[in-house]
């Protein structure tokens, strides 16, 4: 006997959470784009997507975030710190790769300085992951040692039933338990079979890749120049990545007042590393692409003991020139040793 949530009870479930003061965000199609958006009822939710085009990262680390409102007077500067909204949120129907992305980024945002904007949102959010039952050509979670039913980053895990009527419910964290307690009357005990997770073939050998990247003599390898030749230098792979977290601080306003903002930035852009002198230490696209791969599979690992990739495959899926992490890591795997 396991605990089951039936799809027919989802509307009641959402209503319970909403009346308990939660906003519910779930996969939706809005203006020809799939993303996580606030929903009122079960029929608003697109549950059949392999993955939304946008990641849930957007709701923890938004593309632009006001930090301080300031006013410059004759003798003094007045400033007001702007804090993120306190509202409680439930993220329903998160894919394991996106949930893992949050867990991968936690140590980064809490490392030398605890980023309140990230953690306040993290602490006020409950992640309900739904295990995958389908994958597409770009999914690669198994290649980075995760899986289509990984519970990493989840507070509650739902496993779709084979008959499609609902989900098997698994409590992962205390926060998840507290949320499920509010809907305990909607969850029933039953023995039903769960749908098998999809086969996601391993596309590269991440161990071999990390070994090659760690070898300092490969830093200047011709490989980087060849693989990045067609990269056009846009930021779509970084901005659609569930773990990319780089940002820039910008003051927006006039001479006397303005708002200091934290805006997404991307290592794909030449401006990212441009010095005031005009010198740019990463002055070609190949050095920028190398940075992205090194950061994810070498530097981040060295600092936090985990790779900064959860295998969602959006970098390849959405790339205008069909590049991405998979191709590069496959090529590194297959390099003559």
């Amino acid at each position: 006997m396991t605990r089951i949530l039936l799809k027919s009870r989802l509307d009641d479930c959402l209503a319970s959470w909403q009346s308990a003061g939660f906003s519910v965000l779930a996969p939706v199609q809005r203006h020809e784009m799939s993303t996580f958006g606030e929903v009122q009822k079960a029929s608003d939710i697109s549950l059949d997507l392999v993955l939304t085009e946008r990641t849930i990262k957007d709701h923890f680390f938004p593309q632009t975030e006001p930090l301080i409102r300031y006013k410059i007077g004759r003798q003094q500067i007045d400033s007001v710190t702007m804090t993120p909204p306190e509202r409680k949120r439930v993220f329903f129907g998160v894919r394991p790769c996106d949930a893992s992305g949050l867990a991968i980024d936690d140590p980064l945002f809490g490392w030398d300085y605890k980023d309140d904007y990230w953690f306040r949102r993290r602490e006020n959010s409950v992640i309900i992951t739904i295990a995958c039952t389908q994958a597409d050509d770009f999914c690669m979670c198994t290649s980075v040692k995760l899986s289509p039913d990984s519970t990493k980053g989840a507070d509650v895990m739902l496993r779709p039933l084979a008959n499609g009527s609902g989900w098997q419910v698994e409590t992962i964290s205390e926060r998840g338990k507290a949320l499920l307690d509010t809907v305990s009357s909607l969850i029933q005990e039953e023995s039903s079979e769960t749908a098998p997770p999809p086969e996601v073939a391993e596309k590269f050998d991440v161990g071999k890749v990390m070994e090659w990247l760690a070898d300092k003599k490969n830093f200047e390898s011709q490989f980087w120049k060849d693989i990045a030749l067609r990269c056009v230098g846009c930021g779509s792979c970084t901005f659609l990545c569930p773990t990319c977290h780089c940002f820039d601080i910008q003051d927006e306003g006039d001479t006397y007042q303005g708002i200091r903002r934290k805006n997404w930035d991307s290592c794909s852009f030449a401006l990212f590393t441009m010095h005031t002198s005009g010198h740019n230490p990463r002055n070609t696209q190949s050095t920028r692409w190398r940075q992205r791969i090194m950061h994810k599979f070498n530097y981040y690992q060295g600092k936090f003991g985990v790779n900064s990739c959860s295998g969602c495959g959006r970098c390849t899926r959405q790339c205008p020139v069909d590049m991405g992490i998979t191709e590069t890591l496959q090529a590194i795997t297959n390099l003559p040793r």
Binding site: H31, M33, Q63, V232, G233, C234, G235, S236, T238, F239, L240, W264, S266, F269, P320, V321
Partner: peptide, 16 residues
């Protein structure tokens, strides 16, 4: 406004 609200300034439009 709805359409542009989706823009993430990745500049893929410019780069291609």
């Amino acid at each position: 406004k709805e359409q542009f609200s989706k823009c993430i300034k990745c500049y893929a439009c410019r780069q291609v």
